[in-house]
């Protein structure tokens, strides 16, 4: 039972990370109908910015952990979202009206570019970091111990999700965003600056991915330039599982995948956990292509 709860917490925190990345996929797919293949790399950049910020603060002598964490979070979200913006501006915007494959190829190119850009700048070796937030919360008379980092991940994700849902459902920005998702042309005719909304979508997605990157850095304490690929594919799986275009779906999908991975590693063995995820992706697409919370789509004749 204690082992079970341990895995549950592991799965939830991992799922929160996947969910945060998946939101970026789902929003971009919702608004311009493309798979932003470089999104995994954006998350990787988020992790690196967080790491560099922490090291820079260490060099400046700032060691008070709460301040360090807040600065890391802010810096990571800021700089990463600039990357998200730039990727869209450079590689996707000129291709809006191109054949369907062009933006996807461009995105794959961007993803390869960003990976190697990071490898060249920061080196190919993986970057270890000593635990910033050590310590565990023990529950049930010490039978279960949960690290603070994982708890913090779950909490921060919850807070972000609530804030983000409010942003999308209550503000005029969110309304414009949803309008563009329905019909970009019409929204443009009604005075919505569609380009700006699309840019903002990428910025928001990148900011959330940056949070995920920082969380991964804190939980696992080691990152490298290649972490974006696998996390990206899995998060996309999460987005598909939840139903592309649905924000709660993305989060739900992330949690489901996180739990599957955690329990699979915990009870079966960690080597095959990726096969489990990919198999799930295939099965979902075959039997329920619209995902758990997605709207059904009728083939239009």
């Amino acid at each position: 039972m204690d082992y079970f709860i341990q895995q549950l917490i592991n799965g939830l925190s991992l799922g929160a990370i996947y969910g945060l990345i998946a939101i970026g996929y789902t929003m971009v797919y919702g608004i311009i109908g493309m798979i932003n293949f470089a999104h995994g790399e954006i998350y990787m950049i988020g992790a690196f910015v967080a790491l560099i910020t922490f090291l820079a603060m260490g060099a400046l002598g700032i060691t008070w952990v709460p301040l360090a964490l807040v600065v890391m979070l802010a810096a990571s979200m800021l700089f990463t979202s600039v990357y998200g913006w730039a990727v869209e501006r450079i590689a996707y915007r000129p291709l809006r009206s191109s054949p369907r494959l062009a933006p996807l190829i461009s995105a794959i190119g961007m993803s390869i570019f960003l990976q190697n850009y990071m490898q060249l700048l920061q080196g190919a070796r993986s970057k270890p970091l000593q635990p910033i937030l050590p310590g565990n919360l023990t529950l049930m008379d010490g039978a279960v111990s949960v690290s603070y980092v994982r708890l913090a991940t779950i909490l921060i994700t919850l807070v972000l999700m609530v804030g983000f849902t409010m942003l999308i459902s209550r503000t005029s920005l969110g309304r414009a965003q949803r309008a563009c998702e329905q019909d970009k042309k019409m929204a443009g005719l009604l005075g919505v600056n569609v380009d700006r909304i699309i840019s903002l979508t990428f910025v928001m997605g990148a900011a959330l991915a940056a949070v995920a990157g920082m969380m991964v850095l804190l939980i696992y304490g080691v990152i490298d330039f290649y972490i974006g690929f696998l996390a990206g594919v899995k998060s996309f799986t999460a987005a598909v599982l939840g139903g592309v275009g649905s924000l709660p779906g993305a989060m739900l999908g992330g949690v489901v995948i996180g739990l599957i991975e955690a329990f699979w590693s915990g009870y079966v063995g960690s080597e095959w956990k990726d096969v489990a995820t990919f198999t799930l992706l295939v099965l979902v697409l075959i039997f329920r292509p619209t995902g758990l919370l997605g709207r059904p789509e009728i083939e239009k004749v």
């Binding site: 291709l95 191109s98 461009s106 190119g109 961007m110 390869i112 570019f113 990976q115 190697n116 060249l120």
Partner: peptide
């Protein structure tokens, strides 16, 4: 060292220049 970097950039540039 720059091989894959240029490769990725090349993919983007060629798509921008001639999407087909």
């Amino acid at each position: 060292d720059y091989r894959m970097l240029a490769f990725g950039m090349g993919m983007v540039v060629i798509m921008l220049w001639r999407p087909r």
